[in-house]
Write a protein that binds this DNA or RNA. Structure first.
Lengths: 248, 248
DNA sequence: GGTTTGAAATGTCCATACCAATTTAGAAAT
DNA sequence: ATTTCTAAATTGGTATGGACATTTCAAACC
């Protein structure tokens, strides 16, 4: 209990208050100056505690407003590596393929109808509070969940979070996904059909095909993007050149 | 690049310096006062950056000594789920099997001799700074690393950390591993042989066999453990009974 | 009623001074 | 020459006080 760093003990006391319900998720903590007086420490220590808690994903600090308690359940796994689109898709192809194969013999009927509905949401046939992107995530997570294996669920959840992490990566994904949304629908249906038949190896193949097509699309897209980049840079240097011509 | 919080930009700059090799893992970075002058900010901001980095597990701060760079792959990832031995081993069988299959065609000769050496360390033939347990970890991580896929490396690293997380789980593993250490050696050699031949499917099969045997052993062990638990509880309730007899 | 404005609250940052833990170097003893 | 001990230098930790930027919200205004 007797921590060495002051900010650490402050952070722990705050966590106790949060966990004991004094500061429920969503609520706002007292101001720095207030807390400093209450704990009998300086404002610096309070703020350091806040930074530490923020780094742990327990609170959110909004400048000029205050620090707000976050919901513990939605804590975003820190230490996720920065990965490129190809690495990520390759990993997903392998791991989600295996997850689907494992899930096939044991998936429940409820989950099967849930998958059906999620596909309809993605295609836009059905409106829902879930957006099409969230539905896509839920599709893959539902399959992972039906393996009844927390480690597998964690892995696939982490892979999805990596995708969300890098905004640049997300852009690439968006364009790829929306371009061939018809292909994606077909692939999702093939996966679902294999699961319905409780066919492990078909499920694995279908899932892999889904990601293989994605890698193909990524190749095309990254090529086009590289081309645009070249054009942008050359036009940039051209305008800089004309600019320097004018100023001299 | 222009973050809003000052300590955040400082932290990012430090991370760049660390990742670019200016401050390699294990090294000590300049003192607060030095860094403050260098970045043109106050000491508090430097320390706040340090706290943030520490919370992310990237550095270790020792009072009176300095802040030291930690090995990136060695620690972080909070929010690992608690998983049982069976779940974990099942997940490892699937995922590490695929990783081995992917690594087989592209693994370097240096990594192959490294794997050879690691097996020898595990069997005790060779002494090393690495213990046998660490060698086991390194064996699997080396294979994962040679896929050249950071996402895959992350997953397999995470799975190993889950094993280390729960002490109870570790006990079970220890007993299982040491009981049939001869089997384990053979299995590791089979994996290595498959990799040497660049045979993807053989590598996958060998890796899966390794974990399948583990699951078998776990079944036996958990049975024995369940038996012990029953005995413990019954003897406990018996002693409680005699105790309540005495006090009344 | 809707918009603008301005004061209060709040987080952010800095400079300085002092404290406590650690390391280092040099003197002293062997 | 080597070891041991002590004191100074170095380093991170904390406190204080002030200045600044952003946000919030209610009063004032059109």
């Amino acid at each position: 209990m007797t921590e060495k760093r002051l900010y650490h003990t402050v952070a722990n006391k705050l966590l106790e208050l949060i966990d004991s319900g004094v500061f429920p998720p969503g609520s706002r903590l007292p101001g720095e100056r207030d807390l400093a007086k209450r704990f009998g420490v300086s404002r610096v220590s309070i703020r350091e505690a806040g930074i530490a808690l923020q780094a742990q994903g327990r609170v959110e600090i909004k400048v000029g407003s205050g620090v707000y308690v976050l919901d513990r359940s939605s804590l975003p796994v820190y230490g996720l590596p920065k990965v490129g689109p190809f690495e990520l898709t390759e990993a997903r192809a392998l791991f989600e393929g295996e997850a689907a194969a494992l899930a096939a013999p044991m998936i429940s009927d409820e989950d099967l109808v849930r998958l059906e509905r999620l596909i309809e949401i993605m295609t836009g046939e059905v409106e829902d509070e879930l957006g099409p992107v969230e539905a896509d995530a839920e599709f893959h997570l539902t399959i992972a969940r039906s393996t009844n294996n927390h480690a597998i669920l964690f892995v696939i959840d982490s892979l999805w979070k990596m995708r969300e992490e890098a905004s640049q990566l997300q852009e690439v994904y968006e364009t790829v996904c929306h371009k061939d949304h018809r292909d994606r629908e077909d692939e999702h249906r093939l996966i679902l059909e294999a699961l319905k038949r409780r066919d492990s190896s078909a499920a694995r193949i279908a899932m892999r095909a889904h990601f293989s097509r994605m890698i193909e699309a990524l190749l095309v897209e990254s090529e086009a993007q590289a081309l645009r980049e070249v054009q942008r840079k050359s036009s940039e240097s051209r305008s800089r050149y004309t600019l320097s011509q004018q100023t001299e």
